[in-house]
Design a protein around this nucleic acid. Sequence first.
DNA 1: AATGAATGAGTATTCATTCAT
DNA 2: AATGAATGAATACTCATTCAT
Lengths: 245, 245, 245, 245
Amino acid sequence: MVTRVIESEDSKDRIIKAAVQLFSEKGFDGTRVSDIADLADVNKALIYYYFTGKEDILDILLRQLLNDITAFSMDFIHTHLISMIRDGTLELKEDRLTFIDKNAVDSFLDSMRGYYRKAVSYALENRQIIRILMLESLKNSKHQNDLYLFLKLLNKNDNNPVYKTILNADWDFNYSDEFILYKFFFSMMPIINFAVYFDDYKNHSDMEEEDLINRFLQSCQTTINALVCGNEILMRNDCSIIESR
Amino acid sequence: MVTRVIESEDSKDRIIKAAVQLFSEKGFDGTRVSDIADLADVNKALIYYYFTGKEDILDILLRQLLNDITAFSMDFIHTHLISMIRDGTLELKEDRLTFIDKNAVDSFLDSMRGYYRKAVSYALENRQIIRILMLESLKNSKHQNDLYLFLKLLNKNDNNPVYKTILNADWDFNYSDEFILYKFFFSMMPIINFAVYFDDYKNHSDMEEEDLINRFLQSCQTTINALVCGNEILMRNDCSIIESR
Amino acid sequence: MVTRVIESEDSKDRIIKAAVQLFSEKGFDGTRVSDIADLADVNKALIYYYFTGKEDILDILLRQLLNDITAFSMDFIHTHLISMIRDGTLELKEDRLTFIDKNAVDSFLDSMRGYYRKAVSYALENRQIIRILMLESLKNSKHQNDLYLFLKLLNKNDNNPVYKTILNADWDFNYSDEFILYKFFFSMMPIINFAVYFDDYKNHSDMEEEDLINRFLQSCQTTINALVCGNEILMRNDCSIIESR
Amino acid sequence: MVTRVIESEDSKDRIIKAAVQLFSEKGFDGTRVSDIADLADVNKALIYYYFTGKEDILDILLRQLLNDITAFSMDFIHTHLISMIRDGTLELKEDRLTFIDKNAVDSFLDSMRGYYRKAVSYALENRQIIRILMLESLKNSKHQNDLYLFLKLLNKNDNNPVYKTILNADWDFNYSDEFILYKFFFSMMPIINFAVYFDDYKNHSDMEEEDLINRFLQSCQTTINALVCGNEILMRNDCSIIESR
DNA sequence: AATGAATGAGTATTCATTCAT
DNA sequence: AATGAATGAATACTCATTCAT
């Protein structure tokens, strides 16, 4: 049923898989085309038959990743936010999400947990490509800004599919700078860091894979909870409010 | 004799500065020795007079950074934790820090704020080398594990100066796995991410440098506060407890 | 069966035409087989179905050109020289052509004019292949000596069809070294140069195509006239004689 | 006295000499950089130390040749034409050079002979580079138009040093299209052809080097003489005039 | 301390040619 | 007759490193 087609993979796929593995292990600059050919078990020249060059492979890999992530985000928006807004159980205010009651908050937090679990799971499955993305985003390369796709998904810009989706749901909510920054450095980047350092971290701690993931998800939850206040979720992390708890 | 210090840096310093800049911009593999020579305005062969090779420069840079960070951590332990323990205002329990009263908590949180400010400031000043550290830690290189220095500083190991310091203060506290993981992904890595992506993030947002730093520090605070419960700080992020608030 | 000739050239012809164009534009070494395939709009492998390799195409092209030129020369010999000899209006002496009278000279010069016109016209039509011939003749290649076909046509050698033709007409005339050299560098090569540089020269001057050709033919005439002396044509360019005019 | 410095040539010179030889033998495209390195007996990488690439060597070679030729032409203009104009023995008319008497013509023709001898001698000495120039001028390369330097030297253009020299001598003579064409295809190109095909032609004929050169010069003379008419040299080859002789 | 020259081992890419279908 | 895939041998060019001075 789920018969895996390991043997019958064609050369092009083997090249891509080899490139992903090597770029993620040695970096783009540290990977030689002949390494890719060797690992993919193809003739070096064949790589140039399918791709215009080493960089072309990188571009294709990252483009695919960014497309996947965009689709993933879109799906979350649709499945969770938009539907609750339509239900009337969630209302968007200037600087917070206000839920109709405690039940709605719990339901939302539950769905967030599910979303985080899926996101972490996706990130782990694609940790090699994400590692490549991170490596490239740290250099002055053409892919330097690819990591900021996540920020761009929050932009009010017609080229942004997420924004257009939200527009159609009549959402005129404004992300505050603080919220975006918090989201970026304490929600999105931790997941990315978790994915790219997963294997290393596992080796350094003595935790089981399962445990490690669960504890990480628990920590994620902590950072969300930090913003919950009654049946509202603050879209800005204001110390005074939180400290007053 | 001691003259000729101010007028202009000597060649060796210029080489190091050039290497830091280029490694952080293009990565170690992406940087050519001749690039360094050009930027430092020295003859390429002179680099081999001062260093045994390209990798030697990298090693020296990272060793220095790691030493600085270790010293920085030691200082924090001494200045804050150890002294409060000696005062008797702080007691270490199995899974939490218990303070003598609310005042002591506030005082500790205050000193934490100061520490974070200093840490962020240090990270920003050294963001180029930290970027290099991060780049190398993402590859299968000899420096792959340098990032885990932070974890090693929590190890019960005689080679660990922090641990020895704590031992001398008779501290038999046990960091829980959860606490370490939370610290790593939601406290240390955000600071590192903030430093390495600082310039890019500033460009992508429209925030002023000052604002950006303050907002980031505020967010850091939020993640600490998430662990405060009465006059205790939980060394494990337990949802049940926190949600019960 | 014989149908499908007009509708569109078949692949083989397209390959040859593409090769002629590309070899003449970029040289043999500068042309890639895939360039030919692309221009001919055929699959690269098909070229190896029709030809044994890249060089095979070149050989075929040049062989065809050399055959054409040989035939062209033969035709001239027959139509002009041999017939006049048989008429008795032309006699071949040791170092000159002696005509029976001024009329015969004029008639010969006229036919020469026609011959030049035809030669120039042929050269222009085939300027791409001639350019290839010239390019190859300038290199140490197997075709290096193909250009000297023209000289070989003057050799006393049984493999030389022109010589055999002349033999049959009982012509024991001896071309002088001077005459051959003059012919080669001031009659044949100018035509070849004119053909291969035609397009470029046209661009550099502002002359119309028609004008350019006529002026060139006029110049050819001048070099022939330089050898006419009374009703004789000297087969050696002797300054003393000519200056005495 | 004329001690040759074969041994002590430095690497850069050896590279250039090797490149000249190989480009002229195999063409630019047909020459491998490693061939040059082998012939020059230097390490391949050293070629890239002195030159930016294979093409750079070609550019430098051709630039040098074109500069030499320009200087050569300038010298001729100065030494022969300008001086005769100044002493009143030569007058430039619309379409002809008019000399003061037969003596002046002979003197000019003499100096022309000397000039031709020098030109042929220069061309032979530099026949390798000229061959390269010719090869490149036959391709659609950046040097395609370098051969037309000769035409450009006749242009009325301030960038043209020859023209400026002539201007200073108050010469407002107009070259006719016919004259330029005749000069190009029957004076300049024959010399170039003679140079590039010299070795091959010598092999194909059985002439001695000395003889070959003298006969060629004699032929050159013939083409000049074809334009002499009394004590005038026609700057256009008009059949009617010449035939009437 | 400094440098111009030199080099061995790579490194991405190309290209004529072949193969299986 | 035609083609997509595949390959070995090159080929221009690079780069860390060394050497002689």
